[in-house]
Simulated scan of single mutants.
Amino acid sequence: MIGDAQAGRFEGKVALVTGAGSGMGAAAARQLAAEGARVVVLADLNGAAVAAVAGELPAGRAVPLDVADADAVDGAVADVLREYGRLDVLVHAAGVDDPQAKQLIADALVEGRPPEVTDRLSDAAWRRVMRVNLDGAFHVLRAAVRAMRPAGAGAIVVIGSSSAFDTPVGYPHYAASKAGVHALSQAVAKEVVASGIRVNVVAPGPTETGMAARTPEALRSGFADPRVRPYATPEEIADIALFLASDAAANLVGAVLLANGGRFTA
């Protein structure tokens, strides 16, 4: 189900959404199409999944893409410019978690002991999270700025994480990657606003995505706090992302909007 679509808000726009094969990326792509985008290019590492979502949209076009591959990102954005002449909106939702670290944290919760993750964290696990989450964000931001700066306009929204603020115990690499994404986005935002480009960040809390579905039950139940809202839906986060991409957010530059249902404030 599409979130609160506002007809015509993105009328005629050319949009690119990464991580669009599922979750928040798919929700953002559907909503952009519903709100009048001329074309929505959906990019995701899972080619079959992104093709399925794109097939739902009259203005959808699927592109298999690994955001950790700088050349592939540059090529995908160059293709958008070649085919459609411009890039108006980018929503960067691609990212990964670490199921093995989550399982170690969950096991410790069940056994009533502190998690022991950092000393067991491999270089490969660290690099995988950094390569996709932080390096990938850099590749996508750089390519988008290269595309938008000559036009003197554009809106970029990056999906970060509330983990950058509350730094969950046993999840140092993920928290560090998302904190880096926030700082990267804010630094770029201050630079490119002079070129008419706005960059902002949404920092979701627990959200019902594929990552959440793979989270061990012991961890999921730990987020079940009756004093705050339950897991967000992907559409709720997409609503915030598209507000930031819209003209209504013209005065927001380098903002990090914490969207965690009231679990904590920053």
Rank of each mutant, 00 (worst) to 15 (best):
residue 149 R to C: 12
residue 94 A to Q: 12
residue 55 G to L: 02
residue 26 A to I: 01
residue 26 A to M: 00
residue 74 D to F: 12
residue 149 R to W: 08
residue 155 A to S: 14
residue 148 M to S: 05
residue 111 E to H: 07
residue 75 G to D: 13
residue 70 A to L: 07
residue 124 A to I: 09
residue 70 A to C: 10
residue 43 A to H: 02
residue 46 N to S: 13
residue 44 D to V: 07
residue 37 A to H: 08
residue 128 R to S: 08
residue 85 G to L: 01
residue 99 P to V: 10
residue 27 A to F: 01
residue 105 I to L: 08
residue 124 A to P: 01
residue 142 R to S: 14
residue 124 A to H: 10
residue 115 P to G: 00
residue 113 R to G: 10
residue 125 A to E: 05
residue 37 A to R: 12
residue 135 D to N: 06
residue 124 A to R: 13
residue 82 R to W: 14
residue 138 F to G: 11
residue 71 D to N: 08
residue 136 G to D: 03
residue 45 L to V: 13
residue 123 D to C: 08
residue 104 L to G: 07
residue 139 H to T: 04
residue 80 V to W: 13
residue 151 A to F: 04
residue 77 V to N: 11
residue 52 A to N: 04
residue 87 L to K: 12
residue 142 R to Y: 05
residue 147 A to F: 15
residue 45 L to Q: 09
residue 94 A to C: 09
residue 109 L to V: 10
residue 32 L to I: 00
residue 111 E to Q: 14
residue 123 D to F: 15
residue 79 D to R: 13
residue 147 A to G: 12
residue 49 A to Y: 00
residue 90 L to I: 01
residue 152 G to Q: 03
residue 36 G to W: 06
residue 83 E to Q: 15
residue 52 A to C: 06
residue 87 L to E: 06
residue 108 A to V: 04
residue 156 I to Q: 07
residue 151 A to G: 05
residue 40 V to G: 02
residue 123 D to Y: 14
residue 126 W to L: 11
residue 87 L to C: 07
residue 85 G to P: 05
residue 136 G to Y: 01
residue 141 L to D: 11
residue 56 E to S: 00
residue 137 A to P: 04
residue 46 N to Y: 12
residue 151 A to V: 07
residue 57 L to Y: 02
residue 104 L to T: 09
residue 90 L to N: 03
residue 121 L to H: 14
residue 82 R to S: 13
residue 69 D to T: 02
residue 82 R to M: 08
residue 75 G to Y: 01
residue 137 A to Q: 09
residue 100 Q to A: 15
residue 102 K to R: 15
residue 133 N to R: 08
residue 122 S to K: 07
residue 128 R to I: 03
residue 116 E to A: 12
residue 134 L to S: 04
residue 57 L to H: 03
residue 78 A to T: 07
residue 107 D to A: 06
residue 46 N to I: 08
residue 92 H to K: 10
residue 88 D to W: 06
residue 136 G to C: 00
residue 71 D to C: 03
residue 38 R to H: 13
residue 104 L to W: 10
residue 77 V to L: 06
residue 97 D to K: 15
residue 33 A to E: 07
residue 116 E to Q: 14
residue 79 D to V: 09
residue 121 L to G: 06
residue 36 G to Y: 06
residue 89 V to L: 07
residue 44 D to A: 00
residue 116 E to S: 14
residue 98 D to M: 05
residue 61 R to F: 09
residue 75 G to H: 00
residue 75 G to L: 09
residue 134 L to A: 07
residue 94 A to F: 00
residue 138 F to Y: 12
residue 142 R to D: 10
residue 81 L to W: 15
residue 100 Q to Y: 15
residue 47 G to D: 03
residue 147 A to Y: 11
residue 123 D to H: 13
residue 128 R to N: 10
residue 137 A to S: 13
residue 102 K to E: 06
residue 146 R to P: 11
residue 83 E to M: 10
residue 89 V to G: 04
residue 90 L to W: 05
residue 62 A to I: 01
residue 113 R to K: 11
residue 132 V to G: 03
residue 29 A to N: 07
residue 84 Y to V: 05
residue 39 V to P: 08
residue 53 V to H: 00
residue 89 V to E: 02
residue 54 A to M: 00
residue 66 D to W: 10
residue 41 V to L: 12
residue 48 A to Y: 11
residue 93 A to N: 12
residue 127 R to D: 11
residue 35 E to W: 00
